[in-house]
Design a protein around this nucleic acid. Structure first.
Length: 288
DNA sequence: CACTTGACCTGTCCGC
DNA sequence: TGCGGACAGGTCAAGT
């Protein structure tokens, strides 16, 4: 599920909701991947800790605590981080909420705060994880050492973008875009959307692309991700923000999940194929 | 080192 | 209505 825009949307929501809160309790329901070092570190560095800040690197969320530890969270395909204030019974739920009463059957971890509010980690497919570790050790995680630059940083240039791909010259552009060590945060939705925007066929070999192609792709990728953040991300199936609400980028998608519909640029039919191991959406007529 | 494929899980949808 | 298979937003560990 969550790619950079979705994780960033969750981060912004949590950053408004939880800094300053003090952890009262923490429990993992049935996910062995969550809190592998529990209970020792949980008792010592999580219970009683105050939330300082919520940060993001690539698709990873970092909840920084005043104990020198951080909660490091990856939502993978179906993870959700949902904050609930005091329970209001009988109030019903807003129409744009995808989830009801919490915890539910996909809840894997629960963090309670002393003011009665709660943070739920839900994950239907159990690929995601929550880890508690010293904040200073976070950059030493293998993933953090290998992951590429943040594509939306103001000082990230199209030249730097193009240079990141030289290592993957012999593979196709879709696989290279999905490679987190090339550029951080691109997933299946925004790979397809940005390739359509840049009129590039996902089959194209990286080595066959020129400067103009990379410049175009760089611009489209940043535009589409910024738009997606503005729209609160894409809710295809499971994704919700920190308040349990859906994002609306799918209403603006040009090719993703629009197979059988007309290309908004040329009117030819959008097709869906299997490519780079993923469902891939494109317009054969205007992506070359 | 670069590249591809399958594995990790649960749930849903589609065709028979 | 039931059942098998394909598929789903992401990484990893293997294999070549």
């Amino acid at each position: 599920m969550p790619e950079l825009p979705e994780v960033e949307t969750v981060r912004r929501g949590l950053a408004e909701l939880i800094p300053g809160k003090i952890v009262r309790s923490a429990s993992h329901i049935d996910s062995p991947k969550s809190f592998p070092n529990a209970p020792k570190d949980v008792e010592e560095f999580l219970i009683g800790a105050t939330i300082l800040d919520v940060r993001r690197r690539a698709k990873v969320l970092l909840i920084e605590l005043d104990t020198g530890y951080s909660l490091v969270i990856h939502l993978k395909m179906t993870g959700q981080l949902v904050f609930r204030g005091e329970q209001v019974f009988g109030a019903g739920h807003p129409n744009d909420s995808l989830i009801g009463e919490l915890p539910d059957r996909s809840t894997r971890a629960i963090i309670g705060f002393i003011d009665g509010s709660t943070l739920y980690f839900n994950d239907q497919r159990k690929f995601g994880w929550v880890r508690l570790m010293p904040t200073l050790e976070v950059p030493n995680i293998d993933f953090m050492k290998k992951v590429g630059p943040e594509p939306l940083e103001a000082d990230f240039t199209s030249k730097q973008f193009a240079d990141r791909f030289t290592r993957r010259a012999k593979t196709n552009i879709k696989a290279a875009l999905l490679d987190q060590t090339v550029v951080a945060g691109v997933g299946n939705i925004y790979a397809d959307e940005s390739l359509w925007g840049a009129r590039i066929d996902p089959h194209r070999l990286v080595s066959s692309l020129g400067d103009a192609d990379f410049k175009h792709l760089y611009t489209e990728l940043r535009d589409v991700m910024n738009l997606a953040i503005e729209k609160g991300g894409s809710t295809d199936k499971n994704y919700v923000n920190a308040e349990g609400k859906r994002g609306s980028y799918m209403d603006f998608a040009r090719v993703f999940r629009r197979e059988g519909q007309k290309c908004p640029r040329c009117g030819h039919e959008i097709i869906k194929i299997k490519w780079a191991g993923r469902g891939t959406h494109l317009c054969k007529n205007c992506q070359k």
